[in-house]
Write a protein that binds this DNA or RNA. Structure first.
Lengths: 204, 204, 204, 204
DNA sequence: AATGAATGAGTGTTCATTCAT
DNA sequence: TATGAATGAACACTCATTCAT
């Protein structure tokens, strides 16, 4: 019986969970929530349908878990990158770059991420509030940075909230276009252009 | 039999078509594509289900027709406003303002518009190409204006394509947030901020 | 357009409804509620599964409709027979005879009827109250007759309620046994014996 | 290794078996056969689902074992009481009283007992024959007593078989009603009434 | 013996689409 | 043209049973 770490059971269980989540991401990205079937997710994950329901109580739950999992990962990576960036400009660039990178690596996830943003306007599930927060959390990090920048006089007195959302929107649009067009190149130029536009827009 | 204009038949037919499309817009906005039912659309339009299929061959077609119809209207209104604006700055502002206005008036439609943008990344329907063009047509108008502005030296030498998409993205994000938050105010301030940011970003 | 009676549509609709109900009775009798499938009911009725749901909103509803339909018919026939019987003894005999006859003719229905009596003790559906009343209505008719008989001095002063239930139980048991054993004969002897026992039990 | 009595293994095995059976009785009574799950039975018994299948090969088997177990117990107790009763009247009363008592104590079991009686008419499982015998064994005891009573001239010349079933039916109905109504009182009056009715019905 | 993770067949219900009237 | 009854494929979710540990 292991004292530190996890039992064999727990490891296996987490592994299954990940496998299902990864399969779900693929399938949801390919088909969208409604057209995706639990059967296909199960098959993609290499397990039987019943097994999926051992780990997740409903199709919707799987979807949200996949979504949240991806957002958390993005959030964490963004946090790390921001911490390493010395100046405000560098931080903004890091924010944009991290996202471009992350979604280049996780195209499936972007489709889900972006798609769900569209559904947030639909008939309010109980979840849209949480989801809304999950999404806006990202913008709020940016907002804090900008507020700090304004206070320090690094940038002109733009309203931090709207500006943060603006950067957020620009980034999202950029990524969407990259994915739609087949994202040639490392995206350096794309990011460069975006940074140029934004910085000109907010500098002293 | 009328020689000019439409026969009684044609008028009636167009009328039915519009009614169904209007009903579809409401229902799709409320429920999303998957959760909307043809039955509900028919009922909302005040016709029988079979009648809907006399005018549209499938649910998806109704959806796309509603989408296209809305986009055309937006496009037309934008064109009119742009024509009246004297300067590049005025034109950009007109572009943004028209869209904010239009979607304020047609919230139902924005939900569909935005939602479908999310689905454009999904498994490529035959339609996504057309749809893609429908969407990007708007940005190309802007692109032309910006190219002209650069040529005339009204703005600095930004790449017109990416800049157009940037303005497009900013506008879309702004509208989405307005709708999500219940869009207080005429949106003057919102537009003002956006214009300020953009113009600073691109001016000489 | 018919002035009296029903339109062709209504006739057709009622016909379908009866067909489904009849099929349901057969299938429920053969399989029991849980093991019966809507598919089989539909197939037995000669319609598609979806059609069944045009007439009944759920499997349970079909079941209850079949049950109620049968009980109503029994109730009505019993009422007619009772009205024709001159004396109390004749009325009790009529009660028993009618039931024996009815269930001889509608064996399928008895199985449902009897089965559901068993389930009445289970976790209370919202329906068990109604169902309970539906069942006990029959006994209450008998109770009224007995009370009248006691008042007139036709029988000794037995408590009408319990006595009514007793006759009810005896009848039910008799029918069950007849069905289980393959019900030889018209049941005259069976009824005769039961009447003899009961009448001796309650006569002055 | 013990020569007389049971090995530790056997004792443990029987204990597990009883525990499962008791749990099954509760669950089947609460949910009915179809709605009960092996999972819930296992959980109620405090064992894992797999364990249940070490002792019983199928859900249906558990059900029948629980049923049989209850019937045997009732049968045994009835036998004891009958042996102590001196006269035929006393024996009949003992028969009825014992059953009322037993089911008052084992309400869960009555629900199963009664329910299954309803299902005995369904598509003949291989088991319905056994089950039928299990049920009718009780009536046959009564039949023998009545035959003896007739022979001795204690009662009039009623046919023992049908009369036995009649008493059986009356008793079952009485118990069902007691359980349905919440069984107020020790049931003395109920039994008294039933005995009065029956005895008047069969006395010389 | 005991476990509980894994399986996959089974089913009520929905709904886009068709078609006879 | 308009209707709405009929269709049947599709799908989420359940659960009895098995089996590796």
């Amino acid at each position: 019986m292991p004292v530190l770490g996890k039992t064999k059971q727990e490891v296996l269980s987490e592994f299954r969970c990940s496998e299902i989540l990864e399969a779900a991401r693929k399938v949801f990205a390919k088909k969208g929530f409604s057209q995706a079937t639990v059967d296909e997710i199960a098959h993609t994950a290499g397990v039987a349908k019943g097994t999926v329901y051992l780990y997740f109580p409903s199709k919707r739950t799987i979807y949200l878990a996949a979504l949240q999992h991806g957002i958390e990962a993005l959030h964490q990576r963004t946090g790390e990158r921001l911490a390493q960036a010395p100046t405000l400009a560098a931080k903004i660039r890091a924010f944009v770059e991290t996202r471009v990178e992350y979604f280049d690596e996780n195209r499936d996830f972007f489709k889900i991420y972006y798609s769900e943003l569209g559904n947030i306007f639909m008939a309010p599930h109980r979840l849209s509030k949480e989801l809304n927060q999950l999404y806006s959390r990202q913008a709020r990090v940016l907002e804090a940075l900008l507020a700090e920048g304004v206070r320090r006089g690094e940038i002109r007195a733009v309203p931090p909230g709207p500006t943060a959302f603006a950067i957020y929107d620009l980034t999202r649009g950029l990524i969407a276009r990259r994915l739609l067009n087949g994202a040639k190149g490392g995206g350096k130029d794309d990011v460069e252009f975006l940074m140029d536009l934004v910085w000109k827009g907010i500098e002293q």
